[in-house]
Every structure is written in C-alpha cells, then in structure tokens.
Design a protein around this nucleic acid. Sequence first.
DNA 1: CGTCCGTTTGAGGATCATCAATGTCCGTGG
DNA 2: CCACGGACATTGATGATCCTCAAACGGACG
Lengths: 244, 244
Amino acid sequence: MERHGEAELIHADAGPVIRGIEFERNADGTSKGLLTETQRRGLASLATLVTFPPRTIVYREDGELSSIFIAKEGVLKAFRELPSGKRRVAAFLFPGDMFGLAENGRYVNTVQTVTKVVLYQIPSEALAEMLRRDPELQFQFLCKITHELRQGQRHAILIARKDAAGRLAMFLSMLEQNEHAGSQGGWIQLPMSRTDLAEYLGLSLESVSRATSALSRRGIVIFQGGHAARVIDRARFEKLVNAL
Amino acid sequence: MERHGEAELIHADAGPVIRGIEFERNADGTSKGLLTETQRRGLASLATLVTFPPRTIVYREDGELSSIFIAKEGVLKAFRELPSGKRRVAAFLFPGDMFGLAENGRYVNTVQTVTKVVLYQIPSEALAEMLRRDPELQFQFLCKITHELRQGQRHAILIARKDAAGRLAMFLSMLEQNEHAGSQGGWIQLPMSRTDLAEYLGLSLESVSRATSALSRRGIVIFQGGHAARVIDRARFEKLVNAL
DNA sequence: CGTCCGTTTGAGGATCATCAATGTCCGTGG
DNA sequence: CCACGGACATTGATGATCCTCAAACGGACG
C-alpha cells in the first residue's frame, strides 16, 4: 500500500462516528442505531488518525487487506479500473463513511482522495477481533453496510437513466440529502472534478459539461466556480429527478 | 404482506446455507467463512419453510419488515417501482441468497418469484436476537452483505456500458460464474423473461431481443427456447465481456 | 505573460428507445 | 385434432440522445 501522506497518532479524540442507520427502534421510539460512547472509545483505541493530501491513493484494488478506514474529514472516491483503462467510480466517500472491506483478503476498489482528508485507520484483524467480542458494535456495522448496499442500488438506478441532465440532477439530489456532503446555505458542494463526476454518472466528460450547461440554461440549477451548485427552481428540479 | 403460496413447516431439514464469502482465513489456510453445523441448526430452528408459485410477490417495497428470507430453491427478482411506473430489477436471487434486510423497518425492494421457489423464512426479531448472541454467525452475515455490495457495484458497471450486446454478454458471464444459478453442461439457464432481463440490464425489451439476435448471428452464443444460452465462441465472448 | 490543466462548445457518427407490425409458443375450447 | 386467443418475443423504421474527435476557452501558477 502506498502512502504519500504523513500519519499522525492522536488518541485524545472524540473517536470515530459511523454513519449507521437503525435496523430497528426501541419500544419508546428511541434509536438503537448509534454507537455508544463506550464503543466509540473502543474503536478509537484501535484507530490511528492519518492525513492524506488531495489526489492521493489510499489503497489499490487487489492490494492486500490490511486496514479498514473511516472518513473523518474530506471527500474520497472508490473506483475500479476497467480493462480498457476507463474508470468507473463506485462511490464518493464522505465523513462517517467506512471503507476497506475486502473480499478474499484483497481490496476490490481503489480509493483515492479528492480533497485533503483525515481518516481513522483500523487494522483489520484488530477490528475483526473487536467485532467478534462486541455483537452490538458489529450490528451497527451490519446496518452500515446494508445502507451502503442501498446506495449502490440507487446508483444503478441513476446510471440506468438515459438523459444526462436527469442523471446529474439525481446526483445533486443525493448529495443534497447527504448531510455529510457539506451542503451549506442551499449550496451543494461539488469537490470532485468533472471527470470524477463523469466516471460516477457513467457519462463522458463532455456530456457532464453539457448537462450542467443545460440545467443552468433552463434555469433549474446555477453553478459557481464549477464546484458548487444551487437549486433555484425546486419544482422543476424535483420533477426532473423523478422523471424516470 | 400478501402471500399466495401455502406454507409448510419442516424442521427435519439440513438447514439454511448462506452463500457467504470469507472475510479472512485461518493461519492454516482453511476458511472461516462458512456456517458451522451448530449455526445451521440454530438458524433452522428459527426458520419456517415456505413455498411460492411463479410470479408471486413475496413482499412489497415500503411494506413493514417482518421476516428475512433465504432462498432454498428457485429464482426470484428484487426490483423497485419508479415514479413513471417503470421497473428496475436490482438483483436476481438464487439459492443461498439472503434478502429482506430493511431500512427504517420497511422493505426497500419488492421481491417477486420468477420460478417456483422454496424459502427459509426467519422472523426478523428472532434473527436479530440470535445475531446478537452469536457474533460468529453475525460475522457471516456481514460477509454475505459485503459480497452483495460488490454484486451491486458490478451491476452498476454493467449498466454503465453503452452497447447492449456487451451488457448481455456480461450478464451471461455473471450467471455462468454463479454456481447456484443452475448452469449445467455449458448451458446457462435463463428462467427470467426478456422483460425481467431488460429491467435488470437497463435496456428496452426490444434492445434485449436485438442483443440476443446479435450474439446469435455473430456466432458467439446460441439460445434455445429463449430460456437457455450456451457460449460457443469462448474467445470472442470473453473479449466482448471485457470490452469496456 | 505564457504554459498547463481542466472545462466548455461544436459537428458528425453511432447506438438505443419508441412506435408499430409480425411472428412464435402454448393452453383452451370447440 | 385443429382452430383460436393471449402472452411473449422478434423484426423494422424513425427520431432522440450520447460518444467521439476536435478546437477554443479559462483560470492557476510559475
């Protein structure tokens, strides 16, 4: 595993927060879905805090599994290299997202930073050990993975759309609903490049560009500096998102 | 939840087998990844064996979570209904596949049988309870879900292809590699209809038909009765599968 | 101020969706 | 036994959309 970023060891930290969703609720309606303070601390005791600059590979596909990561700050992308050399971005990763679960001891995606990131790095054996000892914690992981499974399915639905503008609108909508993607004051942050976007949406770079132009020209969304977007015609935006 | 099939209670059964993949291996190279006899029996004690005829809804999206299922025999499809009324098939389910994991207490997909099926039905509370008590078993579930996550990503890659014939070839290749999909003697079983296929591949029904014709005409695959396929030019088939 | 990288815009060709018609299989009923 | 009907699948023609190739544009940085 290559690592160009310097790693710093910090244990005096609030600890990892995993974006889990509840599998069920208690009778009183409170959620069982979040980590307890104890669990957070337990994870923190296993974790090393590492920092990577933008555009850095965290690990490569087929690389040997060594650690699991949880994003603390910043944005990353998980992608696969296709035989032709093209890339398909499977997911963008935001704070609270977990990644690095492998298959047959090897990572299946390559993960690269988009912005500067701070990650919790947890040795996989230690994590596996802890999960075996703490079923409740493991249950949260199960919920988390299940949620990612849904995300993947939504991604497939998005890609199945034929209209580029609709795909883009759907993606913006997903970002907007992700409270960790960093949309502020109605502005949706787009830290990734047009190429990253194209590889996620399954479009060519030019089509993405034309799609942004189209949304802009039709007065549905405005873009600023290429890395922020704002919905200005909510009704038509939602109509476009649901037009499939 | 509707149920048109008659349910039979059988406990004198080998018990559920979940297609899991190993998360890691023991030092001696043996797999930790499969259910122990004890775990199988434990699951079996919770499970009811139910049978459904073809084209039957097992549960609907947004339906209240009640049970988790594991396919024992037969093929099913999991899909979502889109606002336009179109459907997108998220996955086909084969023996050993688990389904019914919900979000916020509601199913996210509708699951319908394709052929006659036999399912293990496990009440979700009982299962959750058992998972909390048996971390090793839960670990297998975690592995299983992780594997399904990969499948979903592969699905997204498939759908991102522009050429219909390539998508179909890729799907056939996936079926071929799935030892539970029932390919025998080089013949790949296709129990689902062309419409099901189209909804999985993100194509129109007609395009699927044209894709099968193209593969047939080019001498790469032959189809029989519309529900079985056989690769006759392996080299060109693989080339097509990897041409993306 | 010039270069480099990322983005935008334009023109032409390829592919799929749609609409419509025809063809095939299979169970039903005369 | 054969004719009919319906569900499913195939084939054809047309239009819309995206991809590719290509060129121009813009900002960041030395």
